[in-house]
Amino acid sequence: MISFTLLLLFFTREGDVKKIDIVYTFLFHIPLIVGITIYWIGLKFFRKRGIQYAVLSAFFSLIIILALYPISFKLIGAWLFPDYFLIASYDWTEMGGIGLIYIVISSLLFIAEQWRDQQSELIKLAQLEEEAKKAELKALRSQINPHFLFNSLNLIYSEAIKKSDQSPVLILKLSDMLRYALEKAEKERVNLQDEVNYIADYIDLQTARMNNPAHVVFHTTGNFDDYEIAPLLLLNFVENSFVHSDLSDRPEIQIEISIENGILDFTCSNKKRDQLSPKKNGVGLGIQNSKRRLDLTYPDKYSLQIKDSDGRYFVQLKIELT
């Protein structure tokens, strides 16, 4: 439509558009339309074959335009508009130049269409990847509650066997922690202070049955209220330090959480028991869970260092929360 309008104005000689001008412009466009259509089909068919096929399609289309140009006026024009005497006034070099311009414009339009389609596919792919990421994060978070619940119930069971007065207190604390987990686990981010409080409750739950609770040191530094973090992300590391330790002796567990300039610094270390039973040695799943969540939630924004020596187990995690 743009081409027809522009050429109609170009072919109009006397200022006012007349029927003969419309007829001439129509006949002039027949070879262009046929040639460009063939070229477009060739581009669609050979788009994955290489640039040489695109050049071959352009050359063939240009030949079609040159061949149809005189036919359009001598045969089609005489058949459709017998009352007009119309001639092909451009020679083959001029018409070839015009045809080449149309081929170049068509090529640019084709490239633009392919780029648009490619961007649309990239957007769809990104959306699918984001949906898959959210689904995987949801699955990883769902693994936390049963794991934590299993260990905590074992703790309360051991206290109940001894008919300890701590059992009701521990059950109430566990209830509060499960309520927090149920409310926060499905969220993408939670208040960092709430998460630190949750870890503090977990530590209290664990130290309640220890012979030497003073050997567990939990220290925090900084203002946590201004930041958010993925829920239950640090719990696996804290839980792992207790699982690795001999809680009946001197576990020497040290847990520190600090925040400065938006950088969360979490360190956790413990004295390892002499020999881990196969059952207790299966804590690797929780650590792998945390690593995967970190990769998905904080890509290129965290560093994780784990040292597992003969005597101590050490974890340092830094996350950029801003």
Rank of each mutant, 00 (worst) to 15 (best):
A230G: 12
W40H: 08
F10W: 09
Y198W: 09
Q114V: 03
T207M: 09
H244Y: 03
I71P: 03
E228A: 08
F26W: 10
K280I: 03
K44Q: 12
L182E: 03
Y102P: 00
I30L: 11
S61Y: 06
K74Y: 10
L9G: 03
T5D: 02
R209Q: 13
T93A: 11
S89K: 15
P31T: 00
S158Q: 12
H147R: 03
D225C: 06
P168T: 06
V23W: 02
A67L: 15
D194M: 01
K18C: 10
F28L: 14
N154H: 04
L56W: 12
S303K: 15
L128G: 05
F314T: 08
E186T: 13
S290M: 12
A181M: 15
L32T: 07
P213T: 12
L205C: 04
N154M: 01
D295G: 08
Q275T: 09
Y102I: 01
D249G: 06
R179W: 00
K271E: 15
G97I: 14
Q254V: 00
L296R: 04
L178Y: 04
S107K: 00
H244M: 11
Y302Q: 14
E252T: 02
S309R: 10
Q254D: 07
K163H: 15
E320G: 00
E186L: 13
I105D: 02
A214N: 13
